[in-house]
Write a protein that binds this DNA or RNA. Structure first.
Lengths: 249, 249
DNA sequence: CTATATAATGCAAATAATTGCAATATAAGT
DNA sequence: ACTTATATTGCAATTATTTGCATTATATAG
């Protein structure tokens, strides 16, 4: 077998699986690992692969995973925000959680929209502040450094004494069986209160989080009225959720 | 599993959920926590994550910066902040108003200072958030767009139920006869409550505001214990105020 | 303060990479 | 075809990396 053939084979494998192990390839082609390593060295010179301990990876994969300068899946979140914002009508009282998706929502609010927003997330509030016609009610309490959102009894009380038309819920994990789940107890308690205080609950979730589970259950699926993702409403990924009564947007 | 794969997985998790716990990840991938910690250390080196006790979080969460570019008399305010910060001791409960001087104060807080800050000013809270050891209690209520501070009955109630060691008061006008005055009714009510709830009241004011009057009286001079300006304590400008019992710093 | 959990450090075992060297294969020129 | 020069390959010894464990230090929570 010629060297070029071998290298072509290696490239094909890498394009297929994004990575290879020197050991596996050397066995598959019954040559020594040294040979494979030398091939990889050459291919790296030309920029076709990236060598790592134990094998090599696709440079595109490498690039992809290592160059988030920005918010993860920002485009998807922008798309979600664009769709979600259509649900807000003038004069509504809206309560929102925090999270990067909510921030994108805050950024695309129409400037002429007149509404009242209840929110305990500092970054979200900062965005809301930029809109001239929006009234902001800050939910006050201890500020959780992790989530940059206020949590605690006082916050819960404040939410309880509120009847919102709409609740925008940043969703961390949603699953057809286990419903909506999250990983921070304080935040879960807060979100529960928000759901209870709202007529209509809108979940915002990038599709990646669909069919995933987090340690703490927030609510069963039927508490969520509308789920906004970057996919179209009839995407097969949403099929199970739609069957369970979720209305995708 | 390759090291880079693991790190890519960690990054994805962090981008999805904003934080991870070393223990959880190490179980998910069945490697030791040491390995995860070392991965996190590497990722931190490259600035991809921020290590915290027990795991790591997304850096975009940590370094959200605010640019208040055109602050009037910033140098004077910086000097005031430097002096004022010496009054805070470990373990104190501090309540502060908003305003650019308070923001400068927030910026010069020693990183090792452990204290609790009550505050309703969004920009100030953003600054406080950058300090790892400070506990922040957000005073919640309607957000005044002008002053970017929460005002209203709920805020007053929250302040009333509080006993602070120290109150840092951004001062808009101070006069030997008319005392401290301001121009926003909501803010005045709020500051009054803060004064009442604090052992010691520290006014922060650039010298330019000394001997000026604003429409609404906030309090007589004797409610202010210490006045911090950019001048030295024995500056002639402060003479009248000192004679009235104010202690300049 | 005390108890518990987490972090940092040094060490040892396992695995992988590198290098020099010898054997073999390939190519080129006569 | 024969010889020589060059390239490729496998092997062994050396070196570097990675990983887990034990120990000690540090931080967090009650």
């Amino acid at each position: 077998m010629l060297k070029k053939e071998r290298q072509a084979y290696i490239l094909q494998k890498i394009n297929l699986h994004n990575k290879i192990l020197s050991g596996v390839i050397s066995e598959e082609m019954s040559v020594s690992q040294d040979t494979i390593r030398r091939d990889l060295a050459e291919l790296e010179q030309v920029g076709k692969v990236i060598k790592v301990h134990g094998g090599a990876m696709s440079p595109s994969f490498h690039y992809q995973t290592w160059s988030f300068d920005d918010i993860y899946a920002r485009d998807a979140k922008k798309e979600i925000a664009r769709k979600a914002v259509t649900l807000i009508e003038d004069g509504m009282v809206v309560v929102t959680t925090g999270g990067t998706t909510i921030i994108e929502l805050a950024k695309v609010l129409p400037t002429n929209l007149k509404a009242t927003f209840f929110c305990g997330s500092v970054p979200a509030i900062c965005e809301y502040m930029k809109h001239p016609n929006i009234e902001i009610i800050v939910i006050g309490d201890k500020l959780s450094k992790n989530s940059r959102i206020t949590v605690g009894h006082q916050a819960i009380e404040q939410i309880r004494s509120l009847r919102a038309d709409l609740c925008f819920l940043g969703i961390n994990a949603i699953h057809p069986e286990f419903g909506v789940s999250d990983n921070d107890w304080d935040v879960v308690v807060l979100k529960k209160a928000m759901i209870k205080s709202s007529q209509k609950v809108v979940g915002l979730s990038i599709s990646e989080k669909i069919n995933t589970i987090q340690p703490i259950q927030l609510c069963p699926l039927d508490h969520i009225n509308v789920l906004v993702t970057e996919r179209t409403p009839f995407d097969p990924l949403l099929h199970d959720l739609r069957k369970k009564g979720i209305q995708p947007l």
